[in-house]
């Protein structure tokens, strides 16, 4: 799984590209943790537009990113959610915990 990142005025944008499953989840979490700790953003935008597939591993990735951002005193927003990923997130009721746009 590839990621593209951008930091602008304390907003970190992380774009996920490809397929997100258990195989790539742990490595992705570690890379995202490292980015947040390095950049100390006030806000992180997780952009899923280029995500071709996501299973429940994505739920764990998003919840971990949210906890990390809260620990930094910032917040997390998930944007451009493809239909298949939205079905997974809706089934988990993730919208109650994370801002999904």
């Amino acid at each position: 799984m590839d990621i593209r990142t951008k930091l602008e005025e304390q907003t970190l944008t992380i774009q996920l590209c490809g397929e997100l499953d258990h195989h790539g989840a742990k490595g992705l979490m570690e890379r995202m943790d490292a980015l947040m700790e390095r950049d100390l953003p006030r806000k992180t935008i997780l952009d899923l537009e280029q995500l071709r597939f996501m299973d429940s591993s994505g739920i764990a990735v998003i919840l971990r990113a949210k906890r990390r951002m809260e620990a930094l005193g910032g917040n997390l927003v998930v944007v451009n959610i493809p239909k298949q990923a939205a079905r997974v997130l809706d089934t988990a009721g993730l919208g109650r915990y994370v801002k999904l746009i």
Binding site: S56, S57, A60, L63, R87, T91, A92
Partner: peptide
């Protein structure tokens, strides 16, 4: 739902998703 013994990279939603889908 949410039951897991799989550690931090698991969400405990696997069976719930299989059931729903």
């Amino acid at each position: 739902p949410l039951f897991t013994t799989g550690g931090e990279e698991r969400s405990g939603m696997g069976f719930t998703i299989m059931e729903s889908f």
